[in-house]
Amino acid sequence: MSTIGTPATPGAIRTPGTLTTSGTMTTPLKGAVEDLPLPAIGEPIIEVRNLSKRYGRNIVHQHLNLDIRRGEIVTIVGGSGSGKTTLVRQILGLERPTSGTIKMFGEDISTIEPERARLMRTRTGMLFQHGALFSSLSVFDNVAQPVRELGKVPADLLRDIVMLKLEMVGLPCKHASKPPAALSGGMVKRVGLARAIVLEPELLFLDEPTAGLDPRSSDEVVELISTLHRALGLTVVLITHDLDAMVALSTRVAVIAERKVLVAAPVEEAACVDDPFIREYFLGMRGRRALQALPPERRAKLPPAALAPASVGARPC
C-alpha cells in the first residue's frame, strides 16, 4: 500500500487471478475474489471536524463532523441541496471550507504543500455522475489520461495498464478505440470506473454511479463496485439517491440534514433514529422496499415501521 511519499505504481495489481504476458486477466475478477473476505475496517483516513460552508448568506454546512475509516463503503445521503456533493468537493480540495478542518490520510488538506497534495491525489479516484469522459478522446485515451499526467510511460506498459483496467470493469477491449458517444450509459460508467482506478487508488469517490441506468445495468454497476471494493481493498465514499444501491453496498450511511451529519451508522441503525427526515427517507414505501432486502440478521435490527409491507403507508416508529 502506498504512502504519500510513495504513490501506488500505475498498473501494480493487488488482485488475485492469473495474468497473461500482455497484462490481461485470464480469470474473471468476480470469480477470482468471491471467496475473499471483505476489507478489514481500519483507521480513519478522512476526518472532517466542525466543518462550516457558506455561500454568501446561504449556509450549506454548519459544525459538520464525519469520519471515514479504511476499508469502509460509506454512503452519503440527504435531500436535494443538502450539500452532499459540496462536502465531497471540499474533501477533494476542490473547494475550501468556510471554517473547520478536513484531514485525509492524516494530512490537513488546507495546509499541505503542493507537491504532497499532488502525490495524495494519486491515492484517490473519482467517478463523476455522468462519467465526465472527454468526448474528443477514445475510451483508451480517457482511461490512459491520469497515467499520462504522471509523466512519460512506455507505450507497451500503458497499453497493458489500460487494457487490464478495462477488463477489470467488465468492458471488452474491442471498445477501447470507440468514442464515448458510441457507448451505452452502462458502458460509460464502466469506462469512468476504469479511469478512476487506473492509478490503483486507496480511496474511491463515486457520485451517483447508477444514475440514468436501467435496472439491469444498475444492478451490474452495484455488483462491479462491490467486486472492486473486495479485490482492491478500497475505501469507498458513495453519493447516491438509489436506495437499493445504498442498502446493497454500504458499511455505514451518513445522513446529512439540518446542515450536519445526523447519524453515520449501518443502515439498519440509521433507520432507527427518531428524526423527521430519516423517517421520511427510510420508512417511505421505496425505503422500506430497499431495507427489506437486508439479510435476516440485519433486518431484525430495523424498527417495526420498516417491516411494514412496502405497498402501504408506514406507521410512526
Rank of each mutant, 00 (worst) to 15 (best):
213 L>T: 06
70 R>A: 14
44 P>Q: 04
125 G>P: 08
234 L>Y: 09
119 L>A: 14
261 V>H: 02
254 A>P: 13
3 T>Y: 10
194 A>H: 01
35 D>T: 15
268 E>Y: 13
211 A>H: 02
92 L>F: 05
72 E>C: 10
191 V>K: 02
193 L>R: 03
140 F>E: 07
251 T>H: 13
64 L>S: 12
200 E>Y: 00
212 G>M: 07
220 E>Q: 15
221 V>M: 01
239 I>A: 02
263 V>N: 03
276 P>Y: 06
317 C>T: 05
250 S>M: 06
209 P>N: 06
63 H>G: 08
261 V>R: 01
60 V>I: 15
201 P>L: 00
68 I>H: 10
301 K>R: 11
77 V>S: 02
184 S>L: 05
291 L>K: 00
238 L>D: 11
176 A>H: 13
195 R>M: 12
207 D>M: 00
174 K>E: 15
305 A>D: 01
210 T>D: 08
196 A>T: 03
120 M>Y: 09
19 L>G: 04
148 R>D: 01
79 G>A: 14
124 T>E: 12
235 T>W: 07
210 T>C: 14
45 I>E: 05
269 E>P: 04
154 P>R: 13
73 I>N: 01
97 P>S: 05
32 A>W: 08
187 M>I: 03
101 T>F: 01
206 L>W: 00
30 K>M: 08
256 I>C: 04
242 D>E: 11
291 L>E: 00
164 L>A: 13
311 S>C: 07
26 T>G: 00
132 A>N: 14
144 A>N: 04
147 V>N: 05
144 A>V: 03
11 G>W: 06
236 V>I: 15
245 A>C: 07
177 S>V: 13
178 K>E: 15
244 D>S: 14
195 R>I: 08
218 S>I: 02
287 G>A: 01
264 A>I: 07
132 A>F: 09
175 H>P: 04
226 S>M: 09
206 L>H: 03
104 M>W: 01
243 L>Y: 12
99 S>G: 09
257 A>K: 10
218 S>T: 12
180 P>F: 06
86 T>H: 05
217 S>N: 14
